[in-house]
Amino acid sequence: MNTVWAISTVVIKELYRRKDFYVLLVLTTLLTLAAGSMSFFNENTIVRALKEICLLLIWISSLIIGITTAARQIPSEKENRTIFPLLAKPVTRWQVVLGKFLGCWLACGITLIVFYVFFGILVGAREHTLPVAAFAKLMWMQWVALGVVVALALLGSVVLSAPGPNATLCFIVVLGVTFVGPHLGKVSVGLTEPAGTLLYSIYFLIPHLEWYDLRDIFINDQILPGNAACFMATFYAAAYATLLLVLTWARFRRQNLNT
């Protein structure tokens, strides 16, 4: 476990050494503040649109950080040839995969904490309330979803050699799964066979990341899902992340690292 933790800390250090996080944080802050400074019909108590914009930016930023960080981990180790001394420690390939995953996921968590602190300040300043429990649930669910995304990007990084195409593909898959995935079941009803069954099977196979996006519920002041539902969803995401990590390891352990 120490080995896995040591590898993951390197990934976390990489997060604050690189500029991606700072740039995204500054962009999110500036765009949100710019949106907040706008006045509509001399009404200064409007807050929902601002919350929506800020949460959207947080989701985009965290996805960018999660996917790009995970996508470049193994390819950059191979390219810089640092993978050889790492594996000679001795460290098993499973530990490398797990360490990289843990590092990326924790890095996403740290990023989310910073972003949500800013969001909390914003909401507190505008609404004069701070629903900490709701924020925690919102953040936890997003972090859980990012776990699946990071595992997916890691799998992509051992299948595709370059981080660029992997990151692009991951973005397409994640957006597709989040926005189209939940409706595949409905769409499959109107289709002829075998297309209907095929689509319905895909609907069952894909991870339903839309469950973790609680923005609409929060923005519209609706009741957030209960703890039991969140726990079940966490278990579901953990199962998918584990499956993706096992697939990553299965591919990585047979990979020739010299190519």
Partner: peptide, 16 residues
């Protein structure tokens, strides 16, 4: 809901 995914997914959507 037609299946368990849709049924469970209702926990995370606005239904009122």
């Amino acid at each position: 809901p037609r299946d368990w995914i849709e049924r469970f997914g209702r926990n995370f959507t606005i239904n009122q």
